[in-house]
Structures are given as structure tokens and as C-alpha cells.
């Protein structure tokens, strides 16, 4: 059995290797493709999403190779989702990038600060991801994104949202923000609820290192589907949020 310092050292090495690959993926391996897509693609947004998908797929392949003790169970139902507004619980920084690795056409709402990062912020913007604005403000780009969302969904794209807005520290599902549900209502779109388990065991919400030591089973499963009648007179977004929460809680209860 490895001693504590040695196992921690393994965490450090694996974490450095993974994030080094991640950063080099953007800056070196994939940058020529991003630049090509930016200057020559007629559908920049779609091309950038496809590149994001490939980059993250490679990243998770590497995660699986370097951390064999983590077992992955992502159901076919979840992998096959298209044209959906996906609502999921949030356990780890890995959750959003895992969704990017699953879907070729993907959009999400990202913390506004990330849009200010060099290179990464530009990629987020061109990919059509939306900034989360807490002060009620909005931008032209965001308005265009929401205006075009119904068409984007119809074309097979997924919009995934973590309505808790932040990673759960205690495993419980936090209060929901209504944003994703409002977008679903505006687009008259059904909602797919997906549960995520144990990504926090692999990459803890407040940690800096991957946990390579403990075996964990990461599960991404369908918790249920909601097809609200948005034209019903007493339609309520709050009720819709409660229904989604109930589906998640039922799925997460052991």
C-alpha cells in the first residue's frame, strides 16, 4: 500500500498532467482548429462547440486512463439526449465539462467572470455560451442567444444548466435559480432532469487535486422528463422548479 505522502504526490502528478493537457489542448493542440473555424467557418458557433466537444472528450479519455479507480456509468439515455434543456445537480467543476464532452452541440450558462479570461473567454463567447448576470443586466449577445434558442434546440442542440448555480458542498440540492426554467418556458421546450453522482469524490468542489486514491463510481442518469403545458392559464415556473427538484431528490435518494 502506498504511504500517504506518496499517494498525495500521485494526486499532484495526475492533476498537473491533466490540467497541463487541458490548457495545452486550448493553447496548442486545438488552437489551429479554433483559428481556422473562426476565420473560415460559416457556422462559427457550431464549429466551436464541436471543437469544445472533441477537446473535452480527449480530456476525459485521459482522466479515465490516469485514474482507473474511477468507474463511469453514463446511461445511453443521457448520452443520446438531443434538442433538450437539461437541468442537472452540480457536485464538481467536472460536471459542466463532462456535459461538453457528451454533446457535440452544447450551450450553457457560464459565470460572467470567465468571459474575461484571455483565450478561454473568447472561446466561450464564440461558442454561444451565455454569461450569468446576477444584477438583472443583459447584453445584446445574450438577447440574440435567447431569441435564437428555440431554433438552436430544434436543430439538435442541448442547453444544459445547473440551477443551483454553485457546487453542492454537502451533497444536498441547493436552492434553484429560475433562469433555465424561464428559458425553457420562453422556448416552449420540455425539460430533461439529469442526476450526477460522485464527481465530487473524483474532483472535490473546494479541492485543487484529483483524488486518484479512492475508488468511486460516477453516475450520470436520467432522473425524469417534464413536458409542461406552457399555455395553461395557471402555469407556474415555481411549480416547474419544484417538480424538477422532486425528480432529482427522488433519484438521489439511496
Amino acid at each position: 500500500m502506498l504511504s500517504m505522502p506518496r499517494t498525495h504526490m500521485l494526486d499532484v502528478i495526475v492533476t498537473l498532467a491533466l490540467w497541463a493537457w487541458y490548457i495545452m489542448g486550448y493553447l496548442i493542440f486545438f488552437s489551429p482548429f479554433y483559428l481556422y473555424a473562426y476565420f473560415f467557418s460559416k457556422r462559427k458557433e457550431e464549429a466551436f462547440q464541436r471543437l469544445n466537444h472533441r477537446l473535452h472528450r480527449h480530456f476525459f479519455t485521459l482522466v479515465r486512463i490516469l485514474i482507473p479507480r474511477a468507474r463511469w456509468h453514463i446511461t445511453e439515455e443521457v448520452s443520446a439526449l438531443r434538442s433538450s434543456i437539461i437541468i442537472a445537480n452540480h457536485r464538481s467543476f467536472l460536471d459542466p465539462i463532462l456535459f461538453v464532452s457528451l454533446y457535440e452541440k452544447q450551450k450553457t450558462i457560464v459565470k460572467k467572470d470567465y468571459f474575461g479570461y484571455p483565450v478561454f473567454g473568447w472561446i466561450l463567447k464564440v461558442s454561444g455560451y451565455m454569461p450569468s448576470l446576477t444584477n438583472g443586466g443583459f447584453s445584446d449577445a445574450m438577447m440574440t442567444q435567447i431569441k435564437n434558442m428555440a431554433d438552436y434546440l430544434a436543430s439538435g442542440g442541448n442547453l444544459f444548466i445547473f440551477p443551483e448555480g454553485t457546487r453542492s458542498r454537502d451533497g444536498r440540492i441547493g436552492p434553484f435559480d429560475k433562469g433555465g426554467f424561464r428559458i425553457a418556458r420562453l422556448c416552449r421546450a420540455p425539460i430533461v432532469v439529469v442526476s450526477i453522482r460522485n464527481t465530487d469524490k473524483l474532483y472535490p468542489p473546494d479541492g485543487l487535486l484529483f483524488n486518484t486514491r479512492d475508488a468511486c463510481a460516477i453516475e450520470v442518469e436520467l432522473a425524469g422528463r417534464l413536458t409542461p403545458d406552457y399555455d395553461r392559464d395557471n402555469m407556474s415556473t415555481a411549480d416547474l422548479m419544484e417538480e424538477a427538484r422532486a425528480l432529482l431528490e427522488r433519484k438521489m435518494t439511496p
Binding site: S132, T134, G136, G137, F138, M142, M143, G179, R182, L186
Partner: peptide, 18 residues
């Protein structure tokens, strides 16, 4: 005040503009 009294957010603002 729509934000203070009714929790109006960015998505609501965009919806209203549409």
C-alpha cells in the same frame, strides 16, 4: 422596483424586451 419587489432577473429583462 421590479428587481427588488419581484426578483426580476436578466432572462426576465430579455423576455420583456422581446
Amino acid at each position: 422596483d421590479l428587481r427588488e419587489a419581484h426578483g426580476f432577473d436578466s432572462i426576465d429583462a430579455i423576455e420583456l424586451l422581446l
